[in-house]
Each structure stands twice: as C-alpha cells, then as structure tokens.
Amino acid sequence: MKFLVCISNVPDTTTKITFTPDNKEFNKAGVQFVINPWDEYALTRAIELKEAQGSGTVTVLNVGEADTEPNIRKALAIGADDAIRVNAAPKDAWFVAQQIAHYAKEGGYDVILMGKESIDYNGFQVHGMVGELLGIPTVAPAMKLDMSGNTATLEREIEGGKEIVEVAAPFVASCQQPMCEPRIPNMRGIMTARTKPLKVVEAVGEGAATAVAEYQLPPKKQGVKLIDAANAGELIKLLRNEAKVI
C-alpha cells in the first residue's frame, strides 16, 4: 500500500509570535521550525501501518521552499522512504491542496494522511479540499486508523463523541491524538535519511484564493487582580458583580 503523508513546516510550539513591521508577514528571524505536531501523528501511523503490512511505501510531501528540507530529512529519519518537495511558499490552503492532489494523483497513492491542522495558520481545510479534488472520501479529524486489506476503520471525532467510520482506499484522513505515539528519529534513521530520495518539483494549478491583509497580536491584559486565598469566596462575588460572567 502506498501512503502519502503531507507535512508542513511550522514555528516551534514555544515560539513568541511577532510580525514584520508592516504586519503582513510572520517574522521568521531567530525562529526554530519543526514538523507540524499534528502531522507527526500522520507520519508515525503511516510508518506503523506499513510495517504491519510488511510491504508498501511511505512518501512525505511538503509544499515549501528549500529552507524546509531539514524537516523533510527529519521525516525521512523517522522512517519515511522518500520525499517530494513542491518548490513554492505555501500561499494558502487552496494553493497547497492543489499541489497535494496533483502529486497524489500522479503517484497513485492509496492513503493520504496529514495532521488535523497546522499550528501556524490553523486552517483545518486542506484535507477536505484534497478529497474533493480527487473525488475520494475524507475523514477529519481522525483519532484512530486501522487497515485491513483495502479497508480502513477510523474513529472520527465529533463534538461530544466519536463516530466509527469504514472507508475503502483511496481516502484522505487528517490525524490527531491519540492515534499513536509520535516517533523521534534514531541514529540509524538519521544516517539513512541522508541518502533517501528527495524529489523537488514545481508548483501547479491556480494561485491562492485568500490573502492575509494584516496580522495582529491579541490585546494585552490589564494586569491581574489578586484575591487573598483566605478570603477566596470574594472572587466569586467579583466574577458576578464586576466581571459579570457568572
């Protein structure tokens, strides 16, 4: 079975977010980039399923410029077999989805996995767009994924519960915990990753459908009002009479 895992390159979760002076772009200066944490579930689960099947391949795909290659190599070190980098800045979800759908079709992949959303743009859109472009089912967000032959059994999270869903490949799933325990690269993986194939291809399709006009930071808090622990009940009065939230 051929797995395609889509990964995005995002600022590390501890990053303090700042923008360029015109507030039009994220300020990358001094920022450490990582594989999107949600995508790690997709990657590890694809590798586990390939191992369980005893055959097949896991290909990672990233839409990004050359500076994303260290994280693509990291995905190869974790256990993917080969990689595709679509050489373009990921303008928006529609742009990225077109790239994934095009190269997924070209490569004839059976299962297309990705994280629930990226922690930078938080679109939660690419999975559905790819499924629609390819005319195949999408299951989002998936908390569990098992394969038996050509059929997948997934747990789809809905508000307040989950649905057990069965779909036949090909399909798209966007992944989240507790699907698996994401793996970290070992020394052997890091050594072999250097020689695994990483193909660079050009972007296809239309441009973006949306554009960021301006970024803003949330308004600063006024400062904390402290209440004495011995008199904790006072807090409840303040929440009712001052903040008016209870």
Partner: peptide
C-alpha cells in the same frame, strides 16, 4: 484566529 490563538489575521476572500 491564527498561530493557535497567539495572533489574528485579517484575510481577504476573493
């Protein structure tokens, strides 16, 4: 909302 609650973005839709 963007950057997982750390920022907002004004986005124009075409």
């Amino acid at each position: 909302g963007a950057f997982s609650g750390k920022a907002f973005a004004d986005v124009t839709l075409s």
